[in-house]
Design a protein around this nucleic acid. Sequence first.
DNA 1: ATAGGGTTAG
Length: 749
Amino acid sequence: MAMAAFSSSSSSPLAVSSTVVPHSLSVTDPPSQFLPNHPPLALLSTCKDIRTLKQIHSLVIKTGLLHHNNTQFALTKLIEFCAVSPFGDLPYALSLFDTVENPDQRIWNHVIRGFALSESPALAVEFYIRMMVAGLEPNNHTFPFVLKSCAKLGNAHEGKQIHGHVLKLGVENDPFVHTSLINMYAQNGELGHARSVFDKSPKRDPISYTALINGYGSSGLMDEARKLFDEMPVRDVVSWNAMISGYIQNNLYEEALDFFEGMVRMRITPNVSTMLSVLSACANSGSLELGNWVHSWIEDHGLGSNLRLANGLVDMYAKCGDLERAKNMFDNMETKSVVSWNAMIGGYNHMGCYKEALEIFRRMLKSNVDPNEVTLVSILPAVSNSGALTLGKWIHAHIDKNMNKFQLTRNSALSTSLIDMYAKCGDIMAAKRIFDSMEIKSLASWNAMISGLAMHGFVDMALELFSRMTNEGFVPDDITFVGILSACNHGGFVELGRKYFTSMVEDYNFTPKLQHYGCMIDLLGKAGLFDEAEILIDDMVVNPDGAIWGSLLGACRLHGRVDLAEMAAKRVFELEPENTGAYVLLSNIYAKAGKWDDVARIRTRINDRGLEKVPGCSSIEVDSVVHEFLVGDKTHSQSDEIYEMVDEIDDLLEKSGFVPDTSEVLYDMEEEWKQEALSHHSEKLAIAFGLISTKPGTTIRIVKNLRVCGNCHSATKLISKIFNREIIARDRNRFHHFKDGLCSCNDYW
DNA sequence: ATAGGGTTAG
């Protein structure tokens, strides 16, 4: 029994010294017949904290109200207040409750209500049972409270039993009990039961309609909800809100916004809830125009300083891509909550601005705002994308330290995000440790681990994990197969890849998606099986996108297939005219074949179209700060030292007999310039910076936005040997672990 | 005394 936690403390609440009575509260009249107006109880309406409450309590005792007329009136009032008011105190209510010799129905009801509204609604059911054990019958007031707690708990079983009591006592036609039953069933997903109670109603009111509509909405049955809504004789703002939020829950944003417009047309005044829902619909559907209108509406109705609406606006602007506006609103908010920070972080993530997301997170910590679970789950992808391992480790430690707070979720979203973070930040063993420590794994955690291993080229382990997962009864989904096929791809396991692809289609009945085809085309192309790759593309059940043809194009580069490359590139340009990567790839293929006229032609096309080549960019985290380097970057504050190091590296490479492979350099230029261009690739700069700013022997981890070029790959292998450093590099596709002059990809990528 | 949105953000 959880009672102990609430029982009165060492000093009895009745033992009150006179010193707690403040001067302002003078004891005046003797108890009168008009108790409700008596000063001490009237004071309850202004009571805002537990201290004042205790003072009022002591006043009640001093004035003798407590046992006046032998009624429990004053205590009832006090218990009611303590249990229910937001300024009340449930444990105190219980200590008062314990002092009542024979509490009546009404007192029991208030305590039950207090629990129903509290964080532990299960205790409402417990007290409901205790009440009956004490020999008191529940009444029409009891049921709404106890049914609410069943609704909150998602406990349909207890709810059904209580439904039985309702019928036994014959209060099923009380409108409050009736709607409470519908709501309880609806919130428990028992829509059949909810509907049958609803259909038995003698008189239907908007509240039972709305409760049922909400139930249909959260079960994805918006057509049913719509039918009910249309049947309603009178619709109020809550009914409209129920439809709007139902559509949003089911990702039907257009419909949600239609209903909002309908509501305004019907001259139903939206309230704060409506506007919050509408903002979320705008955010998720990218309706900036409507979002702006909502913003003006909020200002016009004097709600501009409502924190929740302000947060909603920040979120809306951020998700609609107007980050400047979002940032502006955010910076101008006089009070911010953790939600405001989270909305900004989410907005930056949404737009792929991971660095900015990390900056906001740091600012948040500096402002002493405690990150919550949502903050951490949303900052981790930003950490992963920037490869900011130190920050990631800090976050991991923070979660461990605050275990109590996050205990419930450790086995789900947060752990999975951590696995993903460690994998993407290059520490695959740390990812594995978290995965292994999870007592209850989710499909997402298996998926994260499998793709992580695949990304690092630990192909056998990834495949082994897959069979362990199916043995443990998990059913793989399409994401699992992306991981598996990418493992086969990274390992160059053509036969296995074919096998899993077939199994996915035939054993699991999945329709392959673009990513699955992408892995297969890449795998077949790299193996030089161009005929098979082309057949697969022809057989695709979805239209190939730029990435599919891009994969084939990449394979053409590997095998020097100029003819096929031209065809593949043409397809890419048809689908993605702005895809500069494909132009560069094609140009590289021409360059490798010595077709410099064609290289020049491509260059002209890039210039004519005003396309900008995505610059190679590598980042490295040193002392928790992420440093970014572009090709030939000279903007770093330690630029001079970095270039000195680059020269030293080149020197040592040359002495080891390293000959730069200039065949992939874009333009036809002097050999010496080509070497210069290669030598200043972003990954080289990042590695040089890593070498000068970390202790000897420290592992260097870098992240690159593009694929590592052949030359840098060979160079880095040698650097790892010469400087005796492990270098872990993540490129666009996968990880390369350079050690002792070798790379984990076996030069196959 | 009592019933139906909403406590967001990933």
